[in-house]
């Protein structure tokens, strides 16, 4: 039973994600309208407008398809930066146990205590509303978790005999870190990276829902923002507020299922993941 489950979950996750990625790539082909074209507002779902139109008369179905592009882009891009920074800091601080490692670890521990959502909101509020500033705000606050896990992995690996032998042979530090330790922590990095995409997407959706995103950027979160604050919910226009909710949740679920793959396979990762 358990085996079947662990192999099924990542496949389902992969399937969901491939669907969304395909939608994002082929957005101009799939979407029936340009999401910025304006027709009559508050139309109900019909043959012309599959999911109706929003408060200023834009086709919601097309908005949603282009939303996949922006939401996934922000998710992947932030996760890439976060994972890169977190992994490098983690490996370096785990490898150099001395003063360098201690300083990096100290900063990481502090960054872990600082509540990230409020800080992200404050940062985003101070900067002009734009996609890039949201990405900056997400990156600035979420690298610490990755750094900590990669560091504890590196600490284990650096004590293994093959690293000690390399030391004795006089292999350079950089080469040891990035040619020999890195492949051994790659699995953890990939898992953390997968989960980082979903958490970045969640943060972006939350910020956009609060109205911190730029008004021209159409992500799922900002569609939901307008649906909620322009009375789409009060009037029960389900075709407006339900689709972005489903897309966000399904996409996050996809990343979680994919992340589970490694978690199920490796007990230590599983343990660290939850602490």
């Amino acid at each position: 039973m358990l085996n079947k489950k662990t192999s099924l979950a990542p496949k389902m996750g992969m399937l969901i994600l491939m669907f969304f990625v395909a939608v994002a790539i082929f957005a101009p082909i799939i979407s029936p309208y340009d999401p910025n074209t304006i027709t009559s507002p508050y139309l109900k779902p019909s043959r012309e407008h599959f999911l109706g139109t929003n408060d200023i008369g834009q086709d919601i179905f097309s908005e949603l398809i282009y939303g996949a592009r922006l939401s996934l882009f922000i998710g992947f891009f932030s996760a890439f930066i976060v994972t890169l920074v977190g992994s490098v800091l983690g490996i370096v601080s785990g490898y150099y146990k001395g003063i360098v490692g201690r300083i990096i670890m100290g900063v990481t521990n502090i960054a872990l205590v600082i509540p990230s959502l409020p800080l992200t909101i404050v940062l985003a509020a101070y900067m002009q509303a734009s996609i890039w500033n949201i990405i900056i705000a997400i990156c600035a606050t979420s690298w610490a978790g990755t750094a900590r896990i990669i560091r504890s992995r590196t600490l284990q690996i650096r004590e293994l005999p093959f690293i000690k032998i390399e030391h004795a042979l006089g292999v350079g530090n950089l080469q040891i870190m990035f040619a020999h330790i890195l492949p051994n922590v790659l699995e953890v990095i990939l898992i953390k990276g997968t989960l980082a995409v979903s958490s970045a997407m969640l943060t972006e959706a939350g910020l956009s829902f609060l109205g911190l995103s730029s008004s021209t950027a159409k992500s799922w979160g900002s569609i939901l923002h307008y649906a909620f604050f322009r009375n789409g919910v009060l009037n029960n226009y389900w075709w407006w507020y339900m689709p972005p909710i489903i897309c966000i949740s399904l996409c996050v679920l996809g990343f979680m299922l994919l992340g589970y793959h490694g978690k199920g396979k490796n007990k230590t990762t599983n343990k660290m993941e939850l602490t």
Partner: peptide, 8 residues
């Protein structure tokens, strides 16, 4: 429940 954002 865990994957659906609370505001959703």
């Amino acid at each position: 429940i865990n994957t659906t954002p609370t505001y959703c």
